[in-house]
Amino acid sequence: MSSANKMVSIITPVYNGEKYIGRTIQSVVNQTYSDWELIIIDDCSTDATSKLVHEASEADRRIKLIKLKVNQGAAAARNAGIKASGGRFIAFLDGDDVWLPGKLETQLDFMLTNEVSFTYSAYYAVKDEIKILRKAPLKITYSATLLNPRIGCLTVIYDTAVLGKVYMPNIRKRQDWATWLSILKAIKETKGITFPLAEYTVRDNSLSSNKFKLIKYNWEVLRLHKPNILPALLYFSCFLVLNTYKAVRERQKFYSLKRKSERLEKY
């Protein structure tokens, strides 16, 4: 891959996303940086997702549709998009999330200026029009990310001219965290942008019970990086305490802000 190539390949997996995919596409079209391709991988949707994406691709040739023949999950869908990509930079944006207009321009300038091959940013978590900032540290290391996966997939960009094409492990959940760990293990640490550049759509089940369903996947990822059982158990215990606390605090914030908003609407 030539380092002169500055095109961004945006990888967007989607499944039954007709409700959100239009605004996701529009947030890419609205970017102030125009050298991109948007690769949308439809993971066997049964709704009008493919039709909407096809119409968008007819209007803008930078938008491309890949239709999987069998539902395989986000990891396989993203990997199909990465394989088909032609850009130097790989970025991720799921089919129900959005970018702020200056996202690509700001982040690419940051990467090139600071000579970093893997970056992320802060972002907003959004539910019922209520936004909560999910902060991002200025610097992050492999060890810190083992305990606290603070990198939002929708904010990540990596440089294939330095790292090559990095594919995600084929697990149903947490494959993005596993990927960031693999990259950080190789490069040791990296820098990110501390202000928000994207908005993540929070679904109802992601605030509570779904966190517990992820436990086995969290353990699976940690075991990949900590093959000895005792260190893995130690990291896993710390991980559970820290991330359960974070999930509860965020849920409380959402419900508190929602109640305030409802009270204001009454007046």
Rank of each mutant, 00 (worst) to 15 (best):
S2V: 13
S3L: 11
N5C: 08
I10C: 13
V14E: 00
N16H: 11
E18T: 13
I21K: 00
S27D: 15
Y33M: 11
W36Q: 14
D43E: 08
D43R: 12
D43N: 14
C44H: 09
S45R: 09
S45W: 04
A48L: 07
E55F: 01
E55P: 01
A59E: 15
R62I: 07
I63D: 00
I66V: 13
L68C: 10
K69M: 04
N79S: 14
K83M: 09
K83Q: 09
I90M: 11
A91Q: 06
L93V: 14
D96N: 14
P101M: 01
G102E: 11
E105W: 04
L112W: 04
T113R: 11
S121L: 02
Y124E: 04
K127V: 07
I130C: 02
L133M: 05
K135F: 10
A136I: 03
L138K: 10
L138M: 03
T141N: 03
T141F: 03
G152V: 00
T155F: 10
I157N: 01
G164D: 02
Y167L: 12
M168Q: 13
N170Q: 12
I171R: 01
L184W: 03
L184I: 07
L184S: 06
I193P: 02
A198E: 07
A198P: 04
E199Y: 05
D204I: 13
S209A: 14
N210Q: 15
N210V: 15
K211G: 14
F212K: 05
F212D: 04
I215T: 06
K216N: 03
N218P: 00
L230E: 06
L230A: 05
P231G: 04
L233R: 06
N243F: 05
K246N: 08
K246R: 11
V248A: 03
V248N: 01
K253E: 14
K258G: 06
R259H: 01
K260C: 08
